[in-house]
Design a protein around this nucleic acid. Structure first.
Lengths: 363, 363
DNA sequence: CTGAAAGCGCTAACAT
DNA sequence: ATGTTAGCGCTTTCAG
């Protein structure tokens, strides 16, 4: 069942059917009705593949994310998916698994022109190969929108968040709670967000006149396992910190796991503030103070920018071409985990975790 | 840059180039080399859209899931994505948001034939419209593979898990811990897994000679909020349960949130065993006993079945056509949350949560 | 306002 | 072993 069948049955040419389908106005109302009537009975659907081949533009966009399992990217995807649904677009999801080669290979295949646009959270801000692939894609008319992670020295559209500011706020909150010995489980040095959150951490300390201690900066690479190790390193220091700022959701979980194993009670024996909220913790005794962000909205907005580029490709107005880059504000949710009895000299006795059944341990 | 350009430059016909590209053997080795040499310099890529239009089969599959944000579906997607990557397929992700109309509309668009196959976790096992759309899709040569949730009275390929058995095991574990008053936060009645987990619950009780109490069966609809309410209803009963079995990850979280608010300590004041593990809890004081499943593998396997169907469409061997339906076994991970001091008469005093700083509450 | 014809890039049947 | 031709389903000049 194709456009010819419809045309024949309606007694018109395929061209006319096409015009009706695409809502062109140069078709007499009576013939339009005639065609529509035929289609109504048939449950005919124009073939998008043929349309694509003929016109050159598809209704599919690609989303590349480093870690499908991370709730952060699920939320981004959710935002993208909802926007796409409303606009009859479909989204191809590619997980790069934090693997540069995989990222490259996927971008390579995208050059064939199957997709109309691309949203990506690149693995690294520094990777030359990814940068050049994205540049080529963009040059070939496939708009690119970055999400969360920027690419160094390049000008791509993108949606980011104000990490430096909110990270600073988070650390400030620890300082306000009375802490002086504050550590950070930092993120990958090759990622902008990792860098920015570290900068925010330093800024907060500087502003409060607290000297930076190199041993309090440990890299957790945004991973759970490495962050667990980072927490271990921190707590085994001769003079361990009384508070930790963790740079993303996985860092928070890794850190928490170590602290839990040590029988330490969050918000009492030690304090923790995280970047990115973790909804599951809402149901537990860990009432985490965390930086929250409009993650879903970041995905939604990225998709919106992409749509705008479809209509106004940069080539058309090369001179007054302006990048579309948005930075969204996050906010701090205080729930108590920033508190600490120890650092306020309110501490009454031995560590609560050591007494069975008293604090975090329940057996 | 298309196949004609290559052909001209290599001094052969487009057909020959096509043959080389598709690794047909009926081409002289010397010409093959000649063509390959030309391509090597050009970074030419065959246009998949044109290939699709010409051959009729695409390299894209669709995955429809009710809830993109749920970690369960992220893991399924991860499995699908990894398999797809290995086989040069791409996957279009559609979130149906537990909205039947949306599910229908998406399936409707899939009829146009953009995708080669379809993996879906249908919202409801009972919905006639979805069932008939899937039947049509399958009949039109687009293989369908179900994941996790079955469709009533239909025969589709699928990957499921042995929910009845593992749910029974989970409840059995509570019984073994000494419980007699065991409630369930059940899942949607319109979903097979919800039904099976309830059946497993009943079976475990029956086997242990414990009478079923209707008031101990409350529906949480697989949602966090509704499960929170369900927990509330249960705990406000004149004779509340001493243990709860929650039917999925969100039920567990909703239930936990209510119990936490009440200052109850899991594994001490009350017991909880959940269906589906929640990795975030590993970092907290809630050491959840839960049914775990090979979720990633379910996605991977679903994709594998789909691939097999590409090669051996059912029409070709109508008579010896066999459904490919796999049921994967889950297992119970015991971590302690099934224990309860109360029901073992080992309980020493007032509820621990009421004493500040003693158990789950830390302030 | 409508239709004929060409073309999007590739593959496949049918020669040779 | 290679080339010619037609065609996948649609859109789009270009004529009329």
């Amino acid at each position: 069942m194709n456009i010819y069948d419809i045309a024949t049955e309606a007694g018109v040419s395929p061209t006319t059917v096409s015009r009706v389908l695409n809502e062109k106005d140069n078709v007499k109302d009576s013939t339009r009705q005639k065609v529509l009537a035929v289609i109504a009975g048939k449950e005919y659907r124009p073939n998008p593949i043929a349309q694509h081949l003929s016109t050159g533009d598809s209704r599919t966009i690609a989303f590349l994310a480093p870690d499908i399992d991370n709730a952060f990217f699920s939320k981004i995807l959710h935002g993208i998916s909802d926007y796409a649904y409303k606009h009859d677009l479909s989204v191809s999801m590619y997980g790069t698994d934090e693997n540069l080669q995989r990222e490259h290979r996927i971008l390579e295949t995208l050059k064939s022109g199957v997709v109309r646009g691309l949203i990506i959270t690149p693995i690294s801000a520094m990777d030359k190969k990814t940068a050049s692939l994205l540049r080529e894609l963009k040059a070939s008319g496939i708009p690119v929108v970055l999400v969360d992670r920027d690419i160094q020295g390049m000008n791509f559209d993108g949606v980011f968040s104000n990490d430096e500011k909110t990270a600073k706020e988070a650390v400030r909150c620890l300082i306000d709670a009375g802490h002086k010995k504050i550590a950070i489980i930092a993120g990958s040095k090759t990622s902008k967000p990792g860098e920015n959150r570290l900068t925010g951490y330093k800024a907060a300390l500087a502003e409060a006149g607290i000297a930076l201690r190199e041993e309090y900066i440990v890299n957790g690479f945004f991973h759970e396992k490495e962050s667990y190790e980072a927490a271990k390193i921190l707590m085994q220091l001769p003079d361990p910190p009384t508070a930790v700022f963790s740079s993303n959701n996985l860092s928070t979980l890794g850190c928490l796991r170590y602290l839990w194993e040590q029988g330490l009670c969050i918000g009492k024996d030690i304090s923790l503030v995280g970047f990115d909220d973790i909804r599951e913790l809402r149901s537990t005794n860990i009432q985490l103070t965390a930086v929250d962000r409009p993650i879903y909205e970041m995905g939604y907005e990225a998709m919106h920018i992409l749509m705008l580029r479809f209509d106004q490709p940069e080539e058309r107005s090369q001179e007054n071409y302006r990048l579309k880059r948005y930075t969204m504000d996050g906010w701090l949710i205080k729930r108590g985990s920033e508190k600490c009895l120890l650092c306020q000299n309110k501490y009454e006795g031995e560590k609560s975790g050591n007494q069975s059944g008293k604090c975090c341990r329940y057996y």
